[in-house]
Design a protein around this nucleic acid. Sequence first.
DNA 1: TTGAAAGCGCTAACAG
DNA 2: CTGTTAGCGCTTTCAA
Lengths: 339, 339
Amino acid sequence: MKPTIYDVAKEAGVSIATVSKVINNQQVGKKSKEKVLKVMKELNYKPSILASALTGKRTSTIGFLLPDLANPFVAEMARRVEDRAHERGFNLVICSTDFDTQKEAFYVSLLKQKSVDGFILAGRFNNEEVITELLEEQTPVVLLTESYPSLSVNSVKVDDFMGGYEVASHLISLGHEKIAVIGEDANSSRERIRGYKQALQDKGLEICEEMIVISDSSPEDVERLTGQLLDKSIPPTAIFACNDLLAISVILAVRERGISIPDELSIVGFDNTLLSRSTDPPLTTVGQPIQDMCSKVVDLLIEEIEGKSKTKQRIVLLPKLIIRKSTGVHRSKIKDQSN
Amino acid sequence: MKPTIYDVAKEAGVSIATVSKVINNQQVGKKSKEKVLKVMKELNYKPSILASALTGKRTSTIGFLLPDLANPFVAEMARRVEDRAHERGFNLVICSTDFDTQKEAFYVSLLKQKSVDGFILAGRFNNEEVITELLEEQTPVVLLTESYPSLSVNSVKVDDFMGGYEVASHLISLGHEKIAVIGEDANSSRERIRGYKQALQDKGLEICEEMIVISDSSPEDVERLTGQLLDKSIPPTAIFACNDLLAISVILAVRERGISIPDELSIVGFDNTLLSRSTDPPLTTVGQPIQDMCSKVVDLLIEEIEGKSKTKQRIVLLPKLIIRKSTGVHRSKIKDQSN
DNA sequence: TTGAAAGCGCTAACAG
DNA sequence: CTGTTAGCGCTTTCAA
């Protein structure tokens, strides 16, 4: 059916070894080479990557595990990773793990069976055991967006601490003193919160632990938590949501209560997703250099795949505060000033 | 390094044939079977899918080509497709084509070399030649979201015509008579527009061609077109954007002009993406049964892969109008009523 | 420069 | 029920 290397060899009057050599352009007599090339074209011959991988070559495909492809931020990363991978001649097989330890293990195992050349693990990856195993068998892996402080593994992420610090600083400079935080159960959130606390401390503000809450990321939970925050005797004048998706849920909850943004409540997100531009008001957020990060993970992984990497790296890129309309001076402060 | 079927055979004291049989659970003596299973576990043996595919079995991976993974609607589809594929034991290798004929051809060719079992092509696929070729060589293919009227190929999509019809009917029932449309250069848009026209006609309204514009999908272009529409001597009182992403750009453009939605202008989208809930006001849109569609494409494809499919199918699911806050009676009508 | 042949890990007759 | 053996399509020595 589909032509094989034998068909080409026969048609070109040479041995399959010769054909193989022109495929991998090694030394071949000019005449033979031309002949083979011509026949390959005629027969529309494409070498089977399966077969060549079986003999030890790469499959040129990368396993890309992420929490949920439907998440716009994740999807954008996936696209950037895909682009870079494509430039470097690799394909991606993408699997959503939903933070599920079972799925994580399952997919890694399955993709190993399919002989992917390496893995990119994006976002929080719960199954530390799996990572350890990968590391032990020297399977190339790079983490994206999160890192495991205790493991010697390549990773690329943004400086979450700094992002959190900048958000809080911005809010404080606007006069806010009661700043709540809604985070997720992930290292990145924890780092952002750590940055936030540091900023409060540096400015001599009191850190109030009950203003810091962790959600399970579902819109319902976020709305509930937002409600709780707002119902406090002294409610916050600003809420820092640890990512844009959370921020949107916050906005919806807030809007439902008829509270105006930013006059009565400032809101900040994180990630600078598409979403953040289309909310009303447009969301102040922290931009991650997605493209850069994604190029870097791919490059790092390929380096490891090609065996060129000397030592493990933790690459940390700097985030950038993007001020839009969801943050401002609180109404009460405005009165103060006009008095 | 990694254990092979030989290692298992030797360790279990049987032939590789026997091992192979237990892998594919065929008839094997109970004792041997147990022994082999035990050894497989001990050695943590996983059969190489490459090798087995080389002998004619499937790779259990599907090539999924789509326009742009960073598009939230597309990403959500990808996730649903992935889920179903996973349930059926398949993986996805995802490639973004950007509507680029070259990339389309390139990826299809590459994935064929990688021996994917079949293709899902989502959205407008420009390279008809490639589809024809796929069809000729009997490679399983299913189109998602778009269909090629002239080709005998499986496809799953929503009834775009009906969606457009419902949008227009809704708007008309609200009293709108000047309804503009912003579409894309794709069959789905054309169908939606056809539905829109039919509705106008059915209600005895005049169809004004200059109220119908096609954008290149970039936010800038959409904003420009929106401006043009609004600057007409008799501007529309409603705009039907052929998808949510377009609708958002329209909203941004409209908001910039200080026009209020829906009092002065109603806006409708299409797709019911996540985005449509978080805009302000929340967007009236048309919901596609994404999950259903995606399960169906996968099932259809796998049927073809397994050779069970008798005839080609074009599956058309019905859309559903979702009325939110971006549409309403125009201010002028309200006055009329109060007079 | 070229080709014969072994082998990658697995499946599938076919014998036994 | 089990094992032998011949491939699957390609790469890679090793001779010629």
